[in-house]
Design a protein around this nucleic acid. Structure first.
Length: 106
DNA sequence: CGAGTGACCGCAA
DNA sequence: ATTGCGGCCACTC
């Protein structure tokens, strides 16, 4: 079962990310917590890098609402993608982050 | 198969 | 206030 749960973690994270509505964002810590491991935010980052490249990881930011570090193309690309979805960012930080913060329990 | 690393978070000095 | 460290689990080489 342990192995199964581990797989579930990635499945959950990817599933959640795939559900993020356009114009909203979420944090790695939240995804990790929702998946069952609040302190496993790092794994979410790892999955983001080696997981499905088609998933809207651009809507996933750190707990500051800031853009990720190793995003493909840099934070500028990340910001540009968010802007394309209607999300404005300032100084590499999403505007009204708390207001556009998406929550599955909402 | 084993070891290292990671797009993070939280706390301590 | 800032900086440094550890911790957690999963993925890749």
């Amino acid at each position: 079962m342990d192995k199964q749960e581990r797989t579930n973690f990635k499945q959950d994270v990817e599933h959640l990310v795939a559900q993020i509505p356009l114009g909203k964002v979420t944090t790695y810590g939240d995804l990790a917590g929702l998946a069952g491991h609040a302190n496993a935010a790092r794994i979410v980052g790892g999955i983001a890098h080696f997981g499905d490249p088609e998933l809207p990881w651009q809507r996933v930011v750190n707990r500051f609402g800031g853009l990720a570090s190793g995003y493909p193309g840099g934070r500028e690309a990340h910001a540009a993608h968010l802007f394309a979805e209607g999300i404005t960012s300032t100084n590499h930080i999403v505007d009204h982050f708390e207001e556009i913060r998406w929550r599955p329990n909402l």
